[in-house]
């Protein structure tokens, strides 16, 4: 079996273990649950006096950010450091691409520096997948967000948040509210919720901010916030991606808040014990009222804490899967030589 066997998903090795982490598409419920279980155990490490375990000692993790980010970058750095890896962060938007180097060349250079793992954030959908498939197949590649496509670690930290606060997914109503069109978080959340067996996934937003083809995610679409929020257990607010919006999609920010902003009064339509989530950074008064963001039902800061544990889980699982694959491949090569 060759590494590029079409029958095997790119993200998995020959034993079905995680080897890259590019998208939640095609990953089984068992694997997602394994990620959540592993993250649960890493949460405990974050409460220790020495918040560090030696799992990735001697490994080098390269965070390559072609697009700005604070939370994702720092939590990936912290996750790698808590696993005792050496961490390098490159903000490529400010370095070599401005000198004309291609994505391909930048990555090949990093590979030559013997990096064991890349965490990639890129404004183009599919960038991480491209790198895993064509550029550096022997380096574990983690998608830290690519264009509008996927943000799988955010999706999994959202799932960990829901599981820790609601116990599971089987009887839940979850609403995702806002700018779905530009949101890779929404896509990853919808995929994960469906795989994990959430029976009622609702998507709420104006027609201009909803992508076509939402049916394939098995979600119910609402254009009226009050109607969509009724009796939900979880509200996931999305950031209004102002920088990605080039005119025409919205009359004004004020109008968006009036129709789709999460206020205390609107939150009262959800179940009394509903939790409010947001991937951050939050725009106060644009998609969420301050009193809600800081309120008792908000778990927005818990999400950040869980994000470190989820990233530790994904980094360690992918590193182990990639190493196992290298051993499998070298064994099969030496057998062929005999």
């Amino acid at each position: 079996m060759t590494p590029n066997d079409a029958k095997r998903p790119l993200q998995l090795n020959d034993q079905g273990q995680l080897r890259h982490f590019l998208s939640l598409d095609g990953l089984s419920r068992e694997l997602l649950t394994e990620i959540l279980d592993t993250a649960d155990s890493f949460l405990e490490v974050g409460t220790r006096a020495v918040k560090k375990v030696p799992l990735l000692r001697g490994k080098t993790v390269c965070n390559v950010f072609f697009e700005n980010s604070t939370r994702t970058r720092t939590t990936f750095e912290m996750a790698a450091q808590r696993l005792s890896a050496d961490v390098i962060t490159l903000n490529v938007s400010t370095s070599s691409t401005s000198k004309g180097e291609t994505l391909f060349d930048t990555l090949r250079n990093l590979e030559a520096m013997a990096a064991d793992m890349f965490v990639i954030r890129h404004a183009d959908s599919g960038a991480a997948h491209f790198i895993a498939e064509h550029v550096c197949p022997d380096v574990a590649v983690i998608n830290g967000g690519d264009g509008r496509h996927a943000h799988p670690t955010q999706g999994m930290l959202d799932m960990l948040t829901i599981r820790r606060h609601k116990g599971g997914f089987e009887n839940l109503s979850v609403a995702i509210v806002g700018d779905i069109l530009h949101s890779r978080v929404a896509r990853s959340d919808m995929l994960a919720l469906r795989t994990l067996g959430c029976p009622d996934i609702r998507v709420i937003g104006p027609k201009t901010l909803l992508p076509t083809g939402l049916e394939q995610y098995g979600v119910r679409v609402f254009h009226d916030l009050a109607e969509g929020l009724r009796d939900v257990d979880v509200v996931i607010m999305l950031r209004l991606q102002r920088e990605r919006m080039q005119g025409g999609l919205l009359p004004s920010q004020g109008e968006f808040y009036r129709l789709y902003g999460l206020s205390t009064a609107r939150l009262a339509l959800a179940r009394p014990d509903a939790i409010v989530m947001h991937p951050g950074p939050i725009n106060r008064g644009v998609e969420i009222e301050s009193a809600v963001a800081d309120g008792a039902q908000s778990v927005i800061l818990n999400q950040v804490t869980y994000g470190i544990a989820v990233r530790m889980a994904v980094l360690s699982m992918a590193m182990s899967g990639q190493t196992a694959q290298r051993q499998l491949t070298s064994e099969s090569v030496s057998e062929e030589q005999i």
Binding site: Q17, E34, D37, T38, S41, V45, V53, P54, L55, S316, M317, M319, S320, G321, T323, A324, Q327
Partner: peptide, 16 residues
């Protein structure tokens, strides 16, 4: 599990 020396050989036990 997080401290074992055979982690890269045998992987991480999912239910640590």
């Amino acid at each position: 599990s997080f401290y074992r020396d055979d982690f890269t050989q045998s992987g991480l036990h999912p239910q640590v």
